[in-house]
Design a protein around this nucleic acid. Structure first.
Lengths: 203, 203
DNA sequence: CTACCATGTAGACAGCGACTACATCGTTCT
DNA sequence: AGAACGATGTAGTCGCTGTCTACATGGTAG
């Protein structure tokens, strides 16, 4: 029998790590503070010292998720190849992240975050769009894409890939392979932006 | 004091109706069978006679949601105007439904349905894609859109509009008006399909 | 008329989140 | 060095929940 120190020492990280695993097998609604406490061998009240309530833990999970996702997207955006290839690379990174962590993604885009965390979450969550916007501007300056408000176009790309990510994560693609869906979506987006998007011409 | 009959008579419908309202103000996780029973003045065990557990109620909500949504989409697809206009009309109907019933939509596309309901849900959920496919085939035959696998293209449209719907419903459009997002997305999709989508050319 | 069965009630149970009072222990001030 | 303090843990309690059981009611079919 190993003697446990009275203080865990890294309880917050341990809880977050365990919670990440739990939501992917049981969903968010299957996440219980008491079970989590049992899992890491602390009393049922201990988590409250680090997360004032269950939602605070979920908010922290969302933050961690955005940081992980942003890292994946950022490295993908810096990959080798043409602008077109890097665009697809980012799309794959996003959808790949979604398929790997479906529950985490749904937590990230949940609407029920505490008001104090939501500001932080919003800024961290918007980073993906910023990256997309940068790539689109670059492609427009290179003459690969038609002119058009980059803000609007980036939002369209984000919106479409977000749909692909969520449906792929939720296995709602009706049998179509994820890669095929991503390829078809990116192809459509790129083709559309090449010829120009009427609703984005008021730049 | 009005005497209540021992049997409610329409308890199932009353529960579903009340549950619809509840999830839109409190979310799915705020839906409680006991509170629901209180709301419609029956004992806490009564709902179990109609929904074997909480998830069964949620599954029924999802079914009702798909039926409502399909009705909206179907009427939109039969609207007046050019193919292009009808396409936008369907998109607006989908996103409009999402914004009007955000919680219901997330329930519909939740992954945790009972295995017995999931088959029913899948068939009802796929109807939207079928409608999109029909419109795309029609547009291709009329020469308005380039050739390409309608199955694939319909999935791309569905995927993109689903993303727009969810982000609009969750207020994640970053300040952009919903109509603008829908217009930009449909413009991009239509433009892309007009010039042709490489990944959909293997029809 | 009676037997049946769908639909209601009432009570019990364990698990949950949240709150409280108290225990432990590293750190900091004197 | 020693005392005070604050951060972090434990333990107990509360009302709420979903689910299970036994029992009550009343429409309907034989």
């Amino acid at each position: 029998m190993i003697e446990q120190p009275y203080h865990h020492g890294k309880l917050r990280e341990a809880l977050l790590e365990r919670a990440m695993e739990t939501i992917e097998v049981a969903g968010v609604e299957g996440l219980s503070l008491r079970q989590l406490a049992r899992d890491v061998n602390v009393s049922h009240g201990a988590p409250a010292k680090h997360f004032r309530d269950r939602q605070a833990l979920i908010d922290a999970l969302a933050m961690a998720g955005f940081e992980l996702m942003n890292h994946r997207i950022l490295t993908a955006s810096e990959s080798e190849g043409s602008l077109r290839e890097r665009f697809v690379s980012v799309a794959k990174a996003y959808v790949g992240f979604a398929v790997a962590h479906p529950a985490l993604l749904s937590v990230m885009y949940s609407t029920k975050h505490h008001t104090d965390s939501s500001a932080e979450l919003r800024s961290t969550g918007g980073q993906g769009i910023e990256i997309a916007k940068g790539m689109i501007i670059e492609a427009q300056e290179a003459g690969e894409l038609a002119a058009g408000n980059p803000e609007t176009l980036a939002m369209v790309c984000f919106v479409s890939l977000h749909g692909a990510a969520l449906l792929a994560a939720g296995k709602h693609l009706d049998g179509m392979p994820v890669e095929a869906a991503v390829a078809a979506t990116t192809d459509t987006l790129w083709a559309g932006m090449t010829v120009g998007v009427p609703a984005a011409q008021s730049s």
